[in-house]
Amino acid sequence: MPTIDPSLYLSNQQTVRTPSSELGKDQFLQILMTQLQNQDPSNPMDDREFISQMAQFTSLEQTMNMANSIERLVESQLISPVIQYSHMAGMNVTYEGENGAEQSGTVAAVSQKDGYAILELENGEKVYADAVLQVSNPAK
């Protein structure tokens, strides 16, 4: 005889509901379905009203998708080392060279490798951004 998993008993399910001030698409659809199930059969919901509510649902879903896309775009740009260090283009940087002596140069471009920002200098050298000791405006 098969046994029932005790974790599936109704007594083990969460009974406390956490209220939220936001109405998501699942809640909106649930309200709409409840409204359809409990409508008066002698006076059903008007077609135009139903279409209007479905248009609101579609609009809500598109707005939520767009907000999520914008959030992902902003997060990806904040993470990108090129974006983080792009303001350094044209700036003079002082860094510790291979021989341990301080060297300087003007940043011509910013690139990345393995998630690290690399400053490409006008003299052709490439320096990791975390090796920079000082940043200054170019002399005019």
Rank of each mutant, 00 (worst) to 15 (best):
P2Q: 03
P2M: 05
T3Y: 09
T3K: 10
T3I: 09
D5H: 15
D5T: 07
P6M: 06
L10I: 11
S11P: 01
S11L: 09
Q13H: 07
Q13T: 02
T15L: 13
T18M: 14
T18L: 14
P19W: 03
E22S: 08
E22I: 13
D26A: 05
Q30I: 09
I31R: 04
M33Q: 14
M33W: 07
M33T: 14
Q35W: 12
Q39L: 03
D40I: 08
P44I: 05
M64L: 12
M66Y: 11
N68T: 02
I70Y: 12
I70G: 08
E71F: 15
E75T: 11
L78V: 04
S80A: 04
M88S: 07
M88G: 06
A89N: 11
G90H: 12
G90D: 11
M91K: 00
G97P: 00
E98C: 02
A101T: 13
E102R: 05
S104R: 07
G105C: 06
V107Q: 00
A108E: 11
A108F: 06
Q112A: 13
K113A: 02
D114H: 06
Y116R: 08
Y116W: 10
E120W: 04
E120Y: 04
E122F: 08
N123P: 05
G124E: 07
V127A: 00
Y128D: 11
D130T: 11
S136R: 02
N137D: 14
P138V: 15
A139G: 09
